[in-house]
Write a protein that binds this DNA or RNA. Structure first.
Lengths: 214, 214
DNA sequence: AAAAATCTAACGTCCGGTCGGTAGAAAGCC
DNA sequence: GGCTTTCTACCGACCGGACGTTAGATTTTT
């Protein structure tokens, strides 16, 4: 029995239960029961329930970003880079479905300090996508459009997979990734035919970013 | 002071707080304080906290479906019908942002009976979209593709707007709706260029639905 | 005066977290 | 190698508090 074994066990039980019942509905006793120890022993490994949640979310976000950066290495061409990014995003969300679901639904359980840390990581991740969109539309590979709104569209689209995906289904992760990849690329290339109309209506030549979002 | 006034007031306070802090983090005392009454008085209007949540979700879902059906009346042409549906969906989610956000994040708070009722309404709503996709791809207006996955893509895409939308932003609801409309239509029309490849890889001529989802 | 709406006061439960303690392995020491 | 000390991992019992909910009295409205 390696050291750190129980800490990992608690974490994996927590991922299961937070995914199945939600963070607030999962009690420390539940975690203890699932881990086969007393609930006081949980506190030997984690300082609090919230810290356990933070631990899970932090790991997930770090791995997510690392995964994306890794996928973009040595990939050239703006369209190909975007395709690689989408593929990475979808794959990660489907392969580590539970953690990602938690990361998208249980931010409420965090203290405001921890919340800000996670949001910072998420923003950093989003900025990579926004950069890809911006470069692509500046180079004329994609149609011009509101970078932020488009990035949210892309990310939430793929993220949502973690909500409904069933690993036992007949479509593989790669097949689903391909569907999203094509859907998104075509949206980026042609979806914005009305961007001039949009610009006219919303008051002219201002940059299209930083609107309506936090 | 009209009858039913306080019941509505409680409901609207609940929508605000459930949106801002979440269902579980909002206590009956919070609702009472926000409504300007004692917490016991809440129970004169609602039998339980859960019933209040259900009440909100049920109304929202009913209105959502009614809104969609209304938007599709007298609209002909498969592409135009899809555009109208997307427009309706986005508008409703941005106009009634808080309720929709709750409806997408607080299903966990429901009893299993109430949960099933809401899911039933949601499925009914989704089926309308799935019908539009199916008709469109059978008629050759849209490329063929996995109807369920595409419907989830469309719906979650628009739904996500309720997460980040700020009414004070410079883009109007209609402008955002138009962005999504174009994005989705182009995805439906061209995104599926690889569907034959997909079919080949995943084993042939079986219908592409009912995979990977519940 | 009846009915509707709200109040005060309390109850039971459950939850996150703490405390003091313990068996045993590991490390330090001679 | 023997002895002591420290560290690791865990346990059982317990606490304070918050929460949803109820009972019954009281006020407000019609």
């Amino acid at each position: 029995m390696p050291s750190g074994h129980m800490k990992e066990k608690i974490k994996s039980v927590a991922i299961d239960l937070f995914f199945k019942k939600g963070y607030f509905a999962t009690s420390i006793s539940d975690l203890a029961r699932g881990s086969g120890i007393q609930k006081a022993s949980i506190y030997y490994h984690y300082a609090s329930k919230e810290e356990l949640l933070f631990h899970i979310l932090e790991n997930t976000m770090d791995d997510l970003t690392a995964c994306l950066k890794n996928s973009l290495e040595n990939v050239t061409g703006l369209e190909e880079r975007m395709r690689a990014a989408v593929r990475s995003h979808v794959r990660f969300h489907l392969e580590r479905q539970k953690e990602n679901f938690i990361a998208n639904s249980e931010l409420r359980g965090l203290t405001s300090e921890h919340y800000q840390e996670i949001v910072k990581k998420r923003d950093e991740y989003e900025r990579i996508f926004q950069g890809l969109i911006r470069e692509g539309s500046e180079a004329g590979v994609f149609a011009p459009g509101d970078v932020k709104i488009l990035s949210y569209a892309i990310l939430t689209l793929c993220t949502a997979g973690a909500t409904w995906f069933k690993p036992t289904g007949r479509l593989t992760i790669d097949e689903i990734a391909l569907i999203y990849e094509n859907f998104i690329i075509s949206g980026l290339k042609m979806g914005m035919i009305d961007s001039e109309f949009l610009n006219r209506r919303s008051g002219g030549t201002l940059p299209l970013e930083d609107k309506n979002t936090m």
